[in-house]
């Protein structure tokens, strides 16, 4: 570890940034750091699908082409990584999860995203509906690159970015909450950056 901590580089106060947009303990970066817990998956688009599962069954599945034909939005959002970087005004092309979940009859209260590579992330249904979460396939005017989760990732910008699962392939509808990959290992179950919910117990 470097003997000089990040704090001594003065990155916490980027020039011209409204401090009200930077959650506690975060610093603003203009880079887009890549943090992965595994090798980058590459799935050919012709065999890629996005599925909603319920009670062990696939309730609905879309091909890449079908996802691209759904109404999409240009989303601008600030994103906050638990490793303390915040990136402002990121721009995405994405389908609202309201559109996808609206095509399935369910009474779920939680979802768990599942991904190529085995990664999972759990979220309350209330946090992925109401225009607060998306399936994103475009970033900064271009297709979302594999290192950033392409062809598609979740975008849930109001929570720490580990919840915005990369290489997502679907959502599992759940009646009861079940922890995802990092949540099993002591990361906070909810992950609100404004309350600095990094670890379980925060």
């Amino acid at each position: 570890m470097s003997p000089v901590s990040r704090g001594f580089h003065g990155r916490h106060r980027a020039r011209g940034v409204d401090p009200g947009r930077v959650p506690p303990g975060q610093y603003v970066t203009t880079d887009f750091p890549v943090l992965s817990a595994g090798p980058t998956p590459r799935t050919p688009l012709e065999s890629w699908t996005f599925s909603i599962r319920q009670a062990g069954e696939t309730a609905k599945s879309w091909s890449w082409q079908q996802i691209r034909e759904l109404p999409s939005e240009a989303v601008t959002a600030d994103i906050h990584c638990v490793t303390k970087w915040t990136k402002l005004d990121t721009s995405w092309q994405a389908v609202s999860l309201d559109v996808l979940l609206g095509q399935v009859q369910h009474q779920a209260r939680y979802v768990r995203a599942f991904c190529d590579g085995g990664y999972t992330a759990n979220l309350p249904l209330a946090d992925v509906t109401g225009g607060r979460a998306w399936l994103a396939y475009g970033y900064d005017g271009a297709p979302l690159q594999p290192e950033h989760g392409g062809p598609a990732r979740l975008l849930v910008p109001h929570l720490y970015f580990w919840k915005s699962a990369k290489w997502v392939r679907g959502l599992e509808l759940l009646a009861a909450d079940e922890p995802g990959f990092w949540e099993r290992y002591g990361y906070h179950n909810y992950g609100d950056p404004w309350r600095e919910q990094r670890y379980s117990g925060d």
């Binding site: 890549v34 595994g38 090798p39 990092w182 990361y187």
Partner: peptide, 27 residues
């Protein structure tokens, strides 16, 4: 094994199939 350290914890994966072998998180 393949090792990923830039994630919130250390993740060790199988070189043959990429499955997670071990995860070590320190707090």
């Amino acid at each position: 094994a393949l090792v990923y350290l830039d994630a919130p914890g250390a993740v060790m994966r199988c070189r043959a199939c990429a499955a997670v072998l071990a995860v070590i998180v320190r707090r």
